[in-house]
Amino acid sequence: MVTATALEAELLELAGSVPDPELPVLTLQELGVVRAVRLDGPDTAEVDLTPTYTGCPAVEAMSLDIERVLRAHGMREVTVRTVLAPAWSTDDITPEGRRKLQEFGIAPPRVHHGTGPVPLALGPIRTREPETEPVRCPHCGCADTELLSRFSSTACKALRRCLACREPFDHFKEL
């Protein structure tokens, strides 16, 4: 078991404080993409970054921003590694991140209850939770919204419209 040193924890916090280049209301920590920071020497750091989508073009900008922040904190050499496993999920977005997305006008992703086979639940069907909760309008909170397009301004969002206030809005798709 490797335990992070105080400096590693501090660097992790710094790397996590970098704003997302496309959604600057969120930090990388709130987005859940900075996995770890390790010290390979007194001033040599290695950062594990996971992409939201495999082809996310923001990864390069994120890496540069992280390098800049850690260098400013006295690191001479900073390497940002892209790690794919375990795969990032929208469940990795923190509750604070979800709140900020909503405030920014983007409907946050709904929380999954795991992927893969659906567990069998015995019991009367009426006591079961509905399969999926509705996507709520981030502007008026109405649950009556419709899908306009499965892909929106970025691969991670879908375009929807509120049937109450008629405003179109982005929905951060569950992944």
Binding site: T54, F151, S153, A155
Partner: peptide, 20 residues
């Protein structure tokens, strides 16, 4: 327009996979 964006997004996902 929505389809243009959708197809470009799918293309971007595939490009990311191709790069890895």
């Amino acid at each position: 327009l929505e389809e243009e964006v959708a197809l470009a997004n799918i293309a971007l996902d595939l490009l990311g996979q191709a790069r890895v």
